[in-house]
């Protein structure tokens, strides 16, 4: 309904803008790698990362170390899978590969939720709440936010990218400035606890939540697998998809819910890891030159997990826990993104 009124007569449809980087870009003639080769290579990289991460420099109790590291690995794999899949789906929905669900302000919203909770309940009280409840509330608020946003203007924004991007930047800015006010009011000792919640950390993850998140993300992946062919058609853009018989608007409306869940669950589990999905999915497009979901979803999920493991490893072994993995990912991810755009747009 709203989607049909989204393209104003007179101005060209956003999808036809030649400078936008479309997912459906024709494969470059130079690099014709088979997707299977790439999948094998990325899978191998993941296994190597897992092996090194599990076995490197174990001191003390072997079983304790292995259990701890396995939990971290599972968390990183889940987070990587969720965020990378959400990014790929978002690209499919918007027909643009440089966007990320983070742009609609979800990370900032998470930071706001955590800051307000700590300010309202007090850090110690808040941290002593049942972790499952904190997790469920954060996920619910984030998903509800996306649904409200969708109802207000996202549906039109999908066909109107500038609106989507700017709306997201502005919403993110609003959440950040509210969070900054709350953070200013918090007692410095309490802030130290909040600080732990604001940056993704894999060191202490609740086992039960890990299982719950695993189930949710697995269900999401199963859904994606079931409709992967429809998604391939959706990625061709609205006019083509409709002429090929896909119910473009209905699928997109469901897709946004799935994307919201796939971003909200990892974020509520460990904290925001901005740019991870964007980075992994774009690396995948570069390597495979494919936009078919049975190729891009598994490869970018594995790539994201591998990146996280590598960042965590560098952090633990080389930087001696000097910072947070999300800061490393943000730094590297931003640079890689800029390089990608520089190469693509020219």
């Amino acid at each position: 309904m709203a989607a049909t009124s989204g393209t104003p007569t007179g101005s060209p449809a956003p999808g036809s803008d030649p400078v936008l980087i479309d997912v459906e870009q024709p494969p470059g003639p130079a690099s014709e790698r088979s997707p299977n080769t790439v999948l094998l290579a990325v899978g191998l990289a993941y296994l190597v990362a897992v092996a090194v991460f599990m076995t490197y420099d174990i001191q003390g109790s072997l079983s304790f170390a292995l259990e701890l590291r396995a939990k971290k690995l599972l968390a990183m794999t889940l987070v990587g899978t969720g965020l990378a899949t959400a990014a790929v789906l978002f690209h499919t929905m918007t027909g643009n590969r440089i966007l990320t669900p983070v742009l609609i302000g979800l990370d900032s919203l998470y930071i706001l939720i955590q800051s307000v909770s700590v300010a309202f309940f007090g850090a110690l009280t808040f941290v002593s709440f049942d972790e499952r409840i904190r997790f469920a509330v954060a996920v619910a608020i984030m998903v509800a936010f996306v649904l409200v946003l969708d109802a207000i203007f996202l549906r039109r924004a999908v066909t109107d990218l500038p609106l989507l991007v700017l709306g997201g930047i502005v919403l993110g800015g609003m959440f950040t400035s509210l969070a900054a006010l709350v953070i200013r009011l918090i007692d410095p000792n309490e802030f130290l606890i909040l600080e732990d919640l604001l940056f993704a950390s894999f060191t202490l993850v609740n086992e039960e939540l890990l299982v719950i998140s695993g189930v949710v993300i697995a269900v999401g992946l199963a859904l994606v697998a079931r409709v992967r062919r429809t998604l391939d058609v959706i990625a061709l853009g609205r006019p083509t998809a409709i002429s090929l018989g896909a119910d473009y608007d209905r699928v997109n409306r469901r897709l946004i819910v799935l994307i919201a869940v796939l971003v909200a669950v990892p974020t509520a589990l460990v904290g925001p890891v901005t740019f991870l999905g964007l980075l992994a999915s774009n690396a995948t497009y570069e390597l495979t030159r494919s936009f078919r979901h049975h190729v891009t979803v598994p490869i970018s999920s594995l790539a994201a997990a591998t990146l996280l493991i590598a960042a965590q490893f560098v952090l633990e072994e080389l930087l001696d826990f000097a910072t947070r993995p999300s800061i490393i990912v943000g730094f590297v991810g931003g640079i890689v993104f800029i390089v990608l755009v520089l190469r693509e747009v020219r």
């Binding site: 400078v19 936008l20 991007v165 910072t323 943000g330 993104f337």
Partner: peptide
Amino acid sequence: RVRSRDIIVVPLIGIMLGAVMQSIAWFIAL
């Protein structure tokens, strides 16, 4: 260098550049 006048690409590059610098600032502050 991008030679794009695209209404989204241009500010998006700026935002990403800002994100890289902010991550360094956050690193220092943490």
